[in-house]
């Protein structure tokens, strides 16, 4: 109780959030573009799949990921082949967080992508810009607020994650014991002041991030 506050979980959480946010921006951007501008009839199915983590209890998601990624799961041969252990590891946490926070990246991006004026994209095409060129030279500059929102939400949402991590990562200090788990541990052990320090820090940090996000958005006059 009197021991110095161990900040390893905080560092781990920040690392997990950063890695997750980066991976999500890479995966979420093309997915959001496809949802906003694709022409497939099956878009609605993918859309439902992307939102699923919002409505499911994180424990359900974590449970199935545990099955899927585990040493006895249907993909066990694959994990054995590439010699990685995904459950109870940082890599597993990243996979879980990416799926868990996917909607928080895809939705803000889909929103701004839908608002990129089609005439501008068409004008770019008639001026010689191919699809990828159009995306980077027209769509991205018009969607910066969405990228900011997506990155911040992915980061903050991962930071606050508990259920998926608990199911998938267990409680290994320095490897999978993130901030929310550490707080839970402190409470279990009746170390209220440590729990308080970490919790208050998380509340303050999250509030600050969201405040900055909404401030920049109100300045840009772009609704989320």
């Amino acid at each position: 109780m009197n021991a110095a506050l161990d900040l390893t979980p905080l560092a781990l959480s920040l690392r997990l959030s950063a890695v997750t946010a980066i991976i999500l921006l890479i995966i979420g951007t093309p997915l959001a573009w496809w949802l906003a501008h694709g022409r497939s009839r099956f878009r609605f199915l993918v859309e439902a799949l992307v939102v699923l983590p919002v409505v499911l209890p994180p424990t359900v998601l974590g449970f199935y990921l545990l099955q899927l990624l585990g040493a006895n799961g249907p993909l066990a041969w694959l994990w054995a082949l590439v010699e990685v252990r995904l459950v109870f590891s940082f890599a597993g946490l990243v996979i879980g967080s990416v799926i868990f926070s996917l909607p928080f990246v895809v939705y803000p991006l889909k929103g701004v992508f839908e608002k990129v004026p089609r005439p501008q994209l068409e004008a770019a095409a008639t001026l010689g810009a191919g699809p990828v060129d159009r995306f980077f030279s027209v769509a991205v500059p018009a969607s910066l607020s969405g990228f900011l929102a997506a990155a911040v939400l992915a980061f903050a949402h991962t930071l606050g994650e508990f259920g998926v991590v608990l199911m998938l990562g267990g409680n290994i200090p320095g490897e999978t014991q993130v901030l929310s788990i550490a707080i839970y541990n402190h409470v279990e052990q009746l170390e209220y002041s440590a729990a308080h320090a970490l919790s208050a820090g998380l509340v303050a940090f999250s509030f600050m991030v969201l405040a900055v996000l909404h401030f920049t958005n109100s300045r840009r006059k772009v609704a989320l």
Binding site: P117, P119, Q120, E122, A123, A124, S137, V138, P141, A142
Partner: peptide, 8 residues
């Protein structure tokens, strides 16, 4: 086009 589609 009728409405200009300049890049803002």
């Amino acid at each position: 086009t009728q409405e200009s589609s300049l890049f803002a």
